[in-house]
Design a protein around this nucleic acid. Structure first.
Length: 799
DNA sequence: AGCACGCCGACT
DNA sequence: GTCGGCGTGCTC
């Protein structure tokens, strides 16, 4: 009897063993999804087959009788051995359950599971009007967990014979979509159709234009449903079902472009990458090119080469940069070979893209971090654009880093991996020095255009003329000048809303979110305050919630305020704003198009404006508060600031006209700012490296952040102490070269009603780190109680 | 995650 | 006394 190991997307974290009924044995294997009975109720759940054994001796030490697999859900595997190997690595390295990792690697919404469904019995129906629980079921059966009544209430009524409970398999949330297509059989209708009527019109339409999708006839054929039925009835036409691919490009005109000629540096970069690809060998590259040096064109040429060899490629980009413009460039070059995968897609669109990739129809994938799991066959290249970007790290379990997995997958698949950036992470630079990555440099901007001149405006010398909007005179002058030349400007401030917080002039109180230790941000447009961490909102308080005084003052500048003050000070300019608030749904596309089409002169925005955009007429970039992030309690604060400044500066002067960047700051001497001013990446690394080495931070050590969350603050603190004690114990008992920092209260002390305490585990050797983390599993999980322990390996921020 | 079991406070 | 609340433990 065959036996399989099944990993589950949620719930039990270990791989469970099931026997395989003989009739299923040849219809499944590793990579198939199966339904398996679970628990004493044998509720059926989706699981992933990760092991197949030919007999029961390999069942992982489980003693009892194995339950049989209930059903095979797929006709072909949904993940390959290659992807499974990657998932196992992630489960190991990031200390996440294997099933959860596999779930992340697959499109959403495919899972099915039994859920408990309640319906009324005859007896229940007769008393339904006098019982709140029963009356909810009058319109038919309902899933028990959607009822307002508690489970025990429902169970009791079931025992009384008022309700029947049974399990029913939920439908998958997404599945392929089909449409009916009508085509001609070639058989002429026996009796001639009445000329001019619906059926005759339809017949001649199909004769002229070929098979039609039935729903499209609605507007062209009178009474189209009847016409279709009639044509089929007389034998002239037939209906078949055809899959429709929900297309994210639906309304976007396909463009074609011709590859430009590369300069010598670009040519060289493409050549070395293609060489590695031709040899089907893993090699890691760091493509370090100043902004506007044509990195994307290098990717495009390398991909073109790979696609010519009938191999596939994956391009990972930060979510925020995955605009229609960027993916449009790939589509313009490679047409229907391109699939996109990002959070803006509906589940249906994503499933269809994923299936097209799996079937080999779309060998080129452009997507956000989870696209590293894309089922591309015969990978010839993986590109990670803006590799330094912290959004490649997933903020929830499994907390993987897309860039590191790209390297891992390339290693496993034997293909080159290209990490591109103007401001590489210190980790990648260190990997160059260790010989793990080969550095390829693009030192020249396209067309030998100079880098923009960066000027620092010391806000102590030039106090903002409008303090509430952080706008100094030099910047305002430059803006006016730019607009008068019919050129465009970008103003960057990494803070949404109108005012960052309210301050009571009487008692000094700053209204905070009830669930988070975060001050509430004022949004003028909606006259509301909101918490940027949990989304809590309320109307603008008229009085101080503490002292009831009416002296609430707005403090701190956000993009909304900058937009409004600019509109007032520069009435001749058309000012728009781009941040999370103004870019809901398709609005991002509209703003980008308007800016590109010069229907906007000045674009005020958050981080969103810094990434990858290419606007020819932008000649001025203003940074309102450059040191904004330098004071954060995070060892990467300087690195972030340098990267952000360099990226945003790179938006200026990308085409014919020279660019100018004005950086406002109260701290003009900080080395991050100075290095960005001089465009001196090398100097920044040298200084930053020295600091990291001295303090023992990555890349000179490996870190894991252990965070304990609990609604009960004392419990969280107590558990963090226990985690620290356990780790200390493990370290000394095994003589590990690792040590811990903390426990300490997290910099963001409370989020969504949970108090957070943390312990930092640090080691020179990754293996010691992992040994300690493995041993941590001996921590009695029961002692955690209602507290939750989060393990974040290689954290990108320590907040 | 979901579900069963078991131990305590609020009612008849 | 019992009902029904929720904390704790298990799922091949």
């Amino acid at each position: 009897m065959k036996v399989v190991g099944v990993a589950l997307p949620r719930g039990p974290e270990s791989v469970l063993t099931y026997s395989v009924p003989p009739d299923m044995a040849d219809r499944m294997g590793v990579g198939y999804r199966v339904l398996i009975p679970l628990g004493r109720s044998n509720r059926r759940c989706t699981g992933y087959v990760v092991d197949v054994f030919s007999d029961q001796s390999n069942s992982g030490g489980f003693k009892g009788t194995l339950k049989p697999v209930a059903e095979v859900l797929d006709v072909e595997p949904v993940f390959s051995e290659e992807i499974l190997a990657l998932c196992r690595f992630i489960a190991d390295y990031y200390h996440a359950p294997l099933g959860q990792v596999i779930r992340c690697a697959l499109p959403n919404g495919l899972d099915v599971a039994d859920s408990r469904v309640a319906s009324l019995t005859e007896q229940g129906r007769s008393s339904a009007d006098d019982d709140a629980v029963l009356s909810e079921l009058k319109d038919g059966q309902r899933q028990v967990n959607t009822l307002t009544a508690s489970i025990s209430q429902v169970v009791r009524r079931a025992a009384q014979g008022l309700i029947t409970l049974r399990y029913e398999l939920s439908r998958p949330k997404v599945s392929p979509r089909y449409v009916s297509v009508i085509s001609l059989t070639g058989v002429a209708p026996e009796k001639p159709l009445r000329a001019g009527a619906g059926p005759a019109q339809l017949l001649s339409l199909i004769r002229q234009e070929g098979p039609r999708r039935v729903p499209t006839l609605r507007t062209t054929i009178p009474n189209y449903g009847a016409a279709v039925r009639r044509l089929v009835a007389v034998g002239a036409a037939e209906i078949h079902r055809e899959q429709v691919f929900r297309d994210p490009w639906r309304d976007v005109e396909p463009e074609r472009d011709t590859p430009p000629t590369l300069n010598a540096e670009q040519r060289n970069a493409v050549d070395v990458i293609c060489d590695a690809s031709d040899q089907r060998q893993y090699q890691g590259f760091l493509l370090q090119g100043v902004t506007s040096s044509g990195k994307t064109e290098v990717y495009l040429h390398a991909l073109a080469h790979v696609l010519e060899q009938d191999l596939g490629g994956i391009v990972l980009v930060p979510e925020i940069a995955l605009t229609p413009q960027l993916s449009g460039r790939f589509r313009a070059r490679f047409g229907d070979k391109v699939a996109v995968l990002h959070s803006g897609l509906s589940d249906g669109e994503r499933l269809d893209q994923w299936n097209l990739i799996r079937e080999g129809e779309r060998p080129c994938v452009v997507g956000a971090r989870s696209a590293v799991f894309a089922p591309v066959k015969n990978l010839g290249i993986i590109v990670v654009d803006e590799e330094h970007d912290s959004s490649f790290k997933q903020g929830e379990s499994p907390r993987y880093h897309g860039r590191d997995l790209a390297l891992k997958r390339g290693h496993g698949s034997g293909c080159p991996v290209v990490l591109g950036s103007a401001t590489p992470s210190l980790e990648s630079v260190a990997n160059v020095e260790k010989g793990r990555l080969s550095r390829v440099i693009l030192s020249k901007r396209i067309g030998d255009r100079p880098l923009p001149a960066v000027e620092m405006v010391d806000l102590k010398e030039h106090p903002p003329v409008r303090p509430e909007a952080l706008l100094s005179q030099p910047l305002l002058d430059a803006l006016a000048e730019t607009v008068s030349r019919k050129e465009q400007a970008i103003i960057f401030l990494n803070r949404r809303g109108f005012a960052s917080f309210l301050l009571c002039r009487q008692c000094g109180n700053v209204p905070k979110c009830g669930d988070c230790s975060i001050s509430l941000t004022y949004h003028r447009k909606h006259r509301r305050v909101s918490c940027h961490y949990c989304g809590f909102q309320r109307g603008l308080p008229t009085a101080c919630p503490e002292c009831r005084g009416d002296a609430l003052e707005m403090v701190g500048t956000g993009t909304e305020q900058v937009e409004s003050v600019l509109a007032e000070l520069l009435p001749q300019a058309r000012v728009a704003r781009m941040d999370r608030e103004t870019t809901r749904g398709r609005a991002l596309e509209r703003i980008l198009n308007d800016f590109r089409g010069q229907r906007i002169d000045v674009l005020v925005g958050t981080q969103m404006v810094t990434k990858g955009h290419d606007f020819p007429m932008v000649t001025l970039v203003g940074v309102l508060l450059a040191e904004q992030h330098l004071k954060l309690p995070d060892f990467r604060a300087s690195e972030r600031t340098f990267q952000l400044l360099t990226q945003v500066s790179g938006r200026a002067g990308r085409h014919q006209r020279p660019g100018r960047v004005i950086v406002q700051t109260f701290d003009p001497n900080h080395h991050s700012l100075q290095c960005a001013l001089q465009h001196d990446v090398q100097a920044f690394w040298t200084a930053e490296n020295r600091y990291r080495q001295m303090r023992g931070f990555p890349p000179y050590s490996s870190l894991a952040l252990l965070r304990v969350d609990s609604a009960d603050s004392r419990k969280a603190q107590q558990m963090a102490k226990q985690v620290a004690r356990t780790l200390k114990d493990i370290i000394s008992r095994n003589k590990l070269d690792a040590h811990i920092l903390g426990p300490s209260v997290a910099p963001l002390e409370r989020i969504k009603g949970k108090s957070r305490y943390q312990v930092l585990l640090r080691s020179q050797h990754r293996s010691s780190l992992h040994q300690a983390l493995y041993a941590l599993r001996s921590l009695d999980p029961a002692s955690l109680g209602s507290a939750r322990l989060v393990i974040d390996v290689d954290p990108v921020d320590l907040m």
